[in-house]
């Protein structure tokens, strides 16, 4: 599924990475524990409720292309700049992590392979 479609499904606000909206996402990781993301993620998208620069760094290490912050959590300008530098799309949406995961699962996206 393209990032553009995901954005629409979960009614998310895009904060950076507009040129990445047509990239395909196949596998998604939902976690607040960055060590878990590092240990197991082979997805292209991360859904999290944690907001700090290490979220962007962690995503960078495991080649995640898009980060969704649940419950309207909003990264600061420094984090967005870092994501931009690392060529990632960043979005924020109102739904909880559970709801965002549920909606995307219902539409065919899956967790790690």
């Amino acid at each position: 599924m393209r990032i553009r479609e995901i954005q629409k499904l979960i009614d998310a606000r895009l904060l950076c990475g507009e040129h990445l909206l047509d990239e395909e996402i196949h596998n998604v990781c939902g976690s607040d524990l960055m060590s878990d993301v590092l240990a197991f993620s082979n997805g292209q998208m991360l859904i999290t409720g944690l907001v700090n620069p290490q979220v962007i760094r962690t995503a960078e290490m495991v080649d995640i292309r898009c980060i969704v912050f649940a419950r309207d959590k909003t990264p600061d300008a420094g984090m967005i700049e870092l994501a931009r530098e690392k060529d990632m799309a960043v979005m924020t949406c109102r739904g909880s992590m559970f709801d965002v995961c549920g909606v995307l699962y219902q539409h065919g996206l899956r967790g790690e392979e």
Binding site: S35, L38, L50, N52
Partner: peptide, 16 residues
């Protein structure tokens, strides 16, 4: 821990 670490995964991840 507040930053998403300290779950006792660091060294095991390096070994992995």
């Amino acid at each position: 821990r507040n930053l998403g670490f300290g779950a006792g995964m660091g060294l095991p991840n390096m070994k992995r």
